[in-house]
Write a protein that binds this DNA or RNA. Sequence first.
RNA 1: GGGGCGGUAGCUCAGCAGGUAGAGCAACGGCCUUUUAAGCCGUGGGUCCUGGGUUCGAGUCCCAGCCGCCUCACCA
Length: 525
Amino acid sequence: MSLEDRLFQQRYDKLSEIERLGYERYPRKYAYTHTVGQIRESYDSADAATLEAQRPQVRICGRLMTKRRQGKAGFAHLKQGGLQLQIYIRRDEVSEKDFELYKKLDPGDIVGVSGRLFRTRTDELSVRAADVQFLSKGILPLPEKFHGLQDVETRCRRRYLDLFTNDCVRETFAARDRINRSIRDSFARRGYVEVETPMMQPVYGGALARPFVTHHNALDVDLYLRVAPELYLKRLVVGGLDRVYEINRNFRNEGLSKQHNPEFTMLEFYQAYSDYRDLMEFSKELLAETAQAVLDGGTTAEFGGRKIDFAGLNRLTLAETVVEYWPDAATRPTVDALGDIGKLRELAAVHNAQAESALDFSGAVSPGKALLELFEAACEPRIIQPTAVYDYPLEASPLSKRKPDNPDWVERFEIFCGGMEIANGYSELNDPQEQRARFEEQVVLREGGDGEAHGMDEDYLRALCYGMPPTAGEGIGMDRLTMILTNSPTIRDVILFPLLRPEGEIGIAERLRRAGREREAESGE
RNA sequence: GGGGCGGUAGCUCAGCAGGUAGAGCAACGGCCUUUUAAGCCGUGGGUCCUGGGUUCGAGUCCCAGCCGCCUCACCA
């Protein structure tokens, strides 16, 4: 038998030993009087003399994280809700049964302890046990107590283990919860309605991305997991929900990276009778409010060693951004020059030489598209402070309204921060005739093999034909925003169960089967 | 998909000069009634990712594959 099997068997057998002491194997409940958090909050500042005078009685429960036996006494730390409290147990102060239980407990086991609070010689707040209850068994051993669980893959696959061993994980997800709540607050204060729209859609759209496909049996139709909720939310605007938002998952059948998970959480919102400039202003407020909710009232986050201040939002046109963030002073262009494809080709050559990239504008590329590509390659990763980059070329924006004075460009912005895109918003195209034409351009692209292009969405066109008010809409990537606000270098750090290749054979069922057989054999004797 | 790095005990990691595999934690036995990465004495524990190859001999060198991490590319 391998070591791992023996550890497993050993720990499993302890359940029976504990049962023989007179405890239930998996009891129903434990009536605790305090959470560890409540005790820490109430008594962390109480000194030893105060505790001796008050002798507060508590019943607490949690997972045993460490154990230090000392002959006829011992210590242990119980962890609950991410916080620890020490317990102290003496043979002469508990029943023989309880002390035997203490001796058999392993780190990872879950117990309840009642007793009084006191401070040890080293002034640590602790519970002096009067009674110990066994509540659940950790059959598998805990990771090493000092270094914790390090392996990235194991941390994601067994997130539960990551959560109760690495405190920062719990803190990150607590922050994520605070971000969500703050955002819902911000929207509620502004009269927005939260809705849920279909995840399974017969026609996918709202973003240029490859979808996942699934099938509904009863209707015998293929459905797409949504790449964005946009077209449904705008139907709701047609329906008179002038301020509407959704926080939910999008699914894009693309690669994995530090900034990409195939399913990710998008905040998307629409505001009727407004344009993209209004949303830039609102975004500034929303980001500031959200930052304050996680950063103890401040607006400055630290991300990857840099300070990012959400108090303000820089605003630059796409062309201005390229000038501002062009990485090479000697070849820095002017805004006017960026309208010229010849100049853009020169800049691409400069960038290709410096960054080993392969931008190629030799074909029939519009200056706008070329500028956008140049921006993404050379400038986007350099934008650290929250910056709204606005006015985008028409080609890449099939749902955005054109600029009145320049029909090759649309009223669109994206917000960049910490080198990532975190938001995308625009004045919504609400002219059904033009939308039809844009969809048809997309259909041509799709038939040419572009799996990311939109299909023709006639149901959406029909909605527009009833009349959509002038509207602006925006999406914010919640995972990326959370990364920045929690100083998490990868998206995996802010998604509890990021997509991983399925694990092969685990073999735990077989181990349990074997462990259980021994027990049956025993009880059969 | 390209490149780089890695996969050794349940966990964190050494070992890479080719010569039967180590430490700490965890576990097991013993001692210990204020410890806290408790301590002390003792014990057990490995498909060194897989498969080939070179060699008298491979965790170590070579090749292929699998898996992971980083990075570039793709990616709205």
